[in-house]
Amino acid sequence: MPVVTSFRWLSEEEKYERFMERINAGEKIEADDWMPEDYRMTLIKLIAMHGISEIMGALPEKEWVPKAPSLRRKLGIMAKVQDEMGHGQLLLRVAEDLMAPLGKTREEIMQDLFKGDLKFHNVFHMPAPTWADAGLIGWLVDGAAIITQTNMLDASYGPYARALKRICAEEVFHAQHGESIILALAEGTKEQKEMLQDALNRWWEALLMFFGPGSAATTGTSKQDITIKYRIRTKTNEQLRQDFFTKYVPRILSIGLKLPDETMHFDESKGKWVYKQPDWNRFKEIIRNNGPKSKERLRLRELSYHNNAWVREALSGQSAAV
């Protein structure tokens, strides 16, 4: 008991020491607990980016929701994209709690997105010009997301870990939804097969980039070290990319698709996949909102935000009057 009551009298260093003891003991940190500034800031950045990526991620698939080729596919993709928005909402709520002591709200998250200060995942800057892209996003982008998110399921920050558990459960359905679209195309007509191979060729580099650069040396910055120190994640970017290859390369080949990288092979002696590096300079450009669809999608988001300003005003007036 005395330990608890005296915590507020500890020096900052002692508080930090206690905090690290909890982290190393595998304890969960909760929203109201004391936490060092860089832990809070790292989490805000990570979770806001994750949340906003889910929301921006709805936009490439949005194109295909009204166009899905059957009633069953229409229902499937509607449910899938709705889940993504739901994940976005769940994560923004987690980020909002972390931002509250700083006097910040969701409004700041949206403004940061519009200003370009808050990034979203590289994959959602890419075009999705065919129905096969819609399937591929579900299958491989969500498949990649499952791998990175599973890596954080035991994150030291409790609210994030719990949100991820729910999200991962749904992502498994998404990957199945995507796989079902992909299998229909892979077993379909010549045109359908070509459409599928084109989509894979188009998405390959973005999928490799999805896991982030191997080290800070590649792009100048990396959050890997701090997130591992604070037990937010366990594996490095490269380990995750290797896991992705191990899981998906055999599946890609088994449905008759060709890998867009001819140099790719598994090096038995090193126990690693050898592959052609994506263009990391291009990656930097993409996440700076200079990707092929960055401006267009931000424009959609921003336009709807301004277009509906009168609704938010009406709602806030309402709550003030109550």
Binding site: A58, V65, M78, L92, L300, R301, N307, N308
Partner: peptide, 10 residues
């Protein structure tokens, strides 16, 4: 479904 992503709030 055309409204997807464009509603007044998330």
């Amino acid at each position: 479904s055309e409204w997807l992503g464009l509603a007044p709030h998330i």
